[in-house]
Amino acid sequence: MANRKIKILIISIILICSISSCNKADLRSMFISYESVNTRFEQSLNKNMQTGYQTIETTNDEYQLFVMSDSHVGSTKNLNTFMQNAVNADATAVVMVGDLTTGKEDDYDVFAENIEKYPTMLKFPIVGNHDIFFNGWNCFYKLFGSTVYYFVVKGTDFSDIYFCLDTGSGTLGDKQLEWFTNQLETKRQLYRHCVVFTHNNLFRARHIPTTEPMTEELLVLLDLFVKYNVNIVITGHDHKKDVSFFGNTTHIILSALLDKNVDAAYLNLLY
């Protein structure tokens, strides 16, 4: 009888945790997500049809992109340092590779307020898994719009393409993968360099309890990266910097920018 009561208690605790949200982690999303990656993709593409895809023109022979990930706002000290450094360096744009916030609306408001202090800096944000906690996708979409898109940097005699992909749910999903494949097929040959940004790191560089895309999907992506000569894949999620090489593609995992990370860092991509 006592064993039965203990079992019921344990199951009850698990159920309560699974359908409620504790302060930092949205445990509900371990079992039921708020929306699917296909839903976010369709909304993103609808937004892209309204706004178009951005082409940044430059007269310089070289340009810089400042890239960060995992700011997990909350606190904003490193975020502001990153943005100010990008402005001081006259960066062409900043790319924010997911886990920008905790997913909560208040933190989205803080994030938006802080990056709006730099109105002249072009910003390209992408969702991470944390950004879609607590129904956070609605906040991201309202503030920033699309999370699946590409942008181009065009100089006098070069043109580079940058893809921003959503792996906030640990997968591209079939629709986004089909779109990405089609973009590579039709556009890659028109550009000098091709870089992919997405939140979830693809290679498992170390043993941690968070996860990467399924192997079947990774193999498809690696095949695409080889076939279409994707030069760099930049991800976050792992919180620890790593640089790996597979074929002609460099895979970079960014260190987390969040304030309490002693190894907080960002990437200055110079082309």
Partner: peptide, 15 residues
């Protein structure tokens, strides 16, 4: 049943 993202607390049906 295959799901992605469960351990990232952002589950999605995979296959």
């Amino acid at each position: 049943l295959k799901t992605s993202g469960s351990f990232n607390l952002s589950i999605n049906y995979f296959g």
